[in-house]
Nucleic acid binder design. Structure first.
Lengths: 196, 196
DNA sequence: GGGCCAAACGGACCGCGGTCCGTTTCTATT
DNA sequence: AATAGAAACGGACCGCGGTCCGTTTGGCCC
C-alpha cells in the first residue's frame, strides 16, 4: 500500500536514507557553525562531516543559503515556541503593549546573536522563509490587538525592518549605539504607529 | 614639484594610466549592465571589454560588489542633483510635505528600476555607501522641516527601510501589490511618524 | 635624456558554489 | 524472495570571484 492518505499528509514522504542524510547534514552544519563559525561552513566540509557526497548536500538543500536557512530554522523554532506558549510577557497572558516591548527586545537580541547565520542564510533577501513570515504575522496580531487600523501587513513589515540585520548592524556596530538606545527608538516608532 | 597642495586635495591623486583604466572599466561595466544585464557582469568580461587584465579590475574596485557600487553611483548622482537643485516638488521650493511625497515616489521608482544593480552592489549590506548616506540625510532634513522631534537618524532610517529592494520586491513582485498602494501605505507611515 | 622607485599591471593559480550523469539503493508489488 | 523503476547518491567537472607575485610603466629628480 503506497500511501494510505495520499492527499492529507501532503509531504511527499522522504525515503529513509534521504531522511537520515538530511538529519546528518543538518547536524553537521549546526556543529560547524557553532564550533568554527559560518565562514567554515563549506558545502564540501559539511558533506565530509556528515559522511556523504557533495552532490547530496545540494540535492537536500539546493544552495548554501538553503542549508544555512535550514540550520537557522531550528533555532527560530525555539523562539516561536516561546512566543506561542512560553511565559509572559513574550508569550500570551500579558497586555498587548507589554508583549510588543518583549517582542522588540527579544527580536533585537536574537537577531544580533545570529547575525552571521542570518546573513549567510540570505538575510533580507529570500524573505519568504517561514520563520520570517511567522514573525510578521505575530507582529500584525499584536498591532491589531493594540487597535491599529490601516494597511496592517505593510505597517508590520515596516516596523520589523529596523530590527533586521543590516540596520541593526549599522546602528549597533558601525554607529556604536547602545542596544538600549536602539530599543528605545524602536519603541518610539511603535508608539507613533499605534497612536496613528 | 610633486604636490602643490598636499593637504587640500586630499585624494592621493591617481596615476594617469590608473585613471584611464578606471574610466574604461567603469564604462565597460555600465555597458555590460545595460546591454546584457547584471548577470553578465563578470570580472573577466569587464576586464576584457576594457582591454586590461583581470587583476586590474580588482585593484581598482576591490570586489565585484565594489565595481557594481561604482556603476550604481553614477546613476545615483543624477538623482542627487535632482534633489539638490532640480525643479520642485522633488527639488527645493515646494512645501516639505510635498517634497516628502515626491521623495517617496521618486525613491520607489528608482529603486525598482535599479533593483538588480542594487542587489549586485550589496543591496542592504554595505550601507555605508555615500549614495545611501545622502538619501538618509535628505530625509532627515525633510523630517526636521516637518517639525518631527525625537531620534531623527533612527526615524529616517526606519522610514527609508520600506523603500529598500527586499521589501519593495516582496510587496510589488511577490505580493503583486500595485505601486500606488505601496506608495499610499508608505505615506501613511510617514504621516504617523510626523504626527508623533 | 637617463635612472630610480613606487605604483600599476596581468595572468597563472586557488577554493568554493553549483551542475551533471553514470551508479547504487530503497521500496512497492508479485 | 525476486524484480523493476524511481529516487538518491557521489564525485568529476565547470565557471567565477579573489589572490599572488614577477614584470612593466609612469613620474620625478638629477
Amino acid at each position: 500500500m503506497p500511501d494510505l492518505l495520499p492527499l492529507l499528509g501532503d509531504e511527499p514522504s522522504e525515503r529513509s536514507d534521504a531522511a537520515r542524510n538530511r538529519a546528518a547534514l543538518l547536524a553537521a552544519g549546526r556543529d560547524l557553525v557553532a564550533h568554527c563559525g559560518t565562514e567554515a561552513v563549506t558545502m564540501e566540509a559539511v558533506a565530509e562531516r556528515a559522511g556523504v557526497g557533495k552532490g547530496t548536500v545540494f540535492r537536500r538543500f539546493g544552495t548554501r543559503e538553503g542549508l544555512m536557512a535550514a540550520v537557522l530554522d531550528a533555532d527560530e523554532r525555539e523562539w516561536q515556541a516561546a512566543v506561542i506558549s512560553g511565559p509572559p510577557p513574550l508569550g500570551p497572558g500579558a497586555e498587548p503593549w507589554e508583549r510588543l516591548v518583549a517582542f522588540g527586545r527579544s527580536r533585537l537580541v536574537t537577531t544580533l546573536t545570529h547575525a552571521d547565520l542570518i546573513r549567510a542564510a540570505g538575510g533580507f533577501g529570500s524573505r519568504s522563509q517561514p520563520a520570517h513570515a511567522f514573525t510578521v504575522l505575530h507582529l500584525r496580531h499584536l498591532l491589531r490587538e493594540l487597535g491599529v487600523t490601516g494597511d496592517l501587513p505593510m505597517l508590520a513589515t515596516a516596523l520589523l525592518a529596523p530590527l533586521e540585520v543590516p540596520l541593526l548592524d549599522a546602528a549597533v556596530r558601525a554607529e556604536d549605539y547602545p542596544v538600549e538606545r536602539v530599543l528605545a527608538s524602536w519603541l518610539d516608532l511603535a508608539r507613533r504607529i499605534t497612536a496613528g
